[in-house]
Simulated scan of single mutants.
Amino acid sequence: MTPVQCRMARAALDWGVLDLAREAGVSTQTIVRLERGEALKQPTLDRIREAFEAAGVEFIAENGGGLGVRIAKRS
């Protein structure tokens, strides 16, 4: 997950920094650092990504069309 994907995922969910921090169990400063491009420990990144995925976000890898995110279809 890149800083841009983090911002895109928050926008897709209409989450602020505080919302993501609460859902991931991290501080708001941690989210700010991630979105600035600062390095975070892998377990912290995993918690943030898991919070997004639990909310229905899918991360799209670089596949010729660029990195991205989307909201998963609910069955």
Rank of each mutant, 00 (worst) to 15 (best):
Q42P: 10
L45S: 10
R70Y: 07
I71L: 15
D46N: 10
K41A: 15
W15I: 06
D46I: 09
K41P: 07
L18W: 05
T30A: 13
T44R: 01
E35V: 03
R33K: 14
L13K: 02
K41F: 08
A11V: 07
G64C: 11
E38H: 11
S27K: 00
G56C: 03
D46G: 04
T28L: 06
L18V: 12
E58V: 09
G68Y: 03
E62R: 06
A21F: 03
D19A: 07
R22L: 13
A24Q: 03
D46E: 14
Q42C: 08
R7P: 00
V69L: 09
E38Q: 13
R74I: 14
I71H: 04
A55M: 04
L13Y: 07
L13S: 08
Q42E: 14
Q29H: 04
L45Y: 04
Q42D: 13
I48S: 04
R22M: 12
D46Q: 11
V17M: 12
I71F: 03
V17L: 14
K41G: 10
G65C: 10
R33M: 12
Q29M: 08
A54S: 15
R36H: 11
A51Q: 00
V4D: 15
E58P: 00
E35F: 03
V57A: 07
V4N: 13
A61F: 11
L67I: 13
P43G: 07
R22Q: 14
V32F: 08
A51T: 02
V26S: 05
R33P: 00
T30V: 15
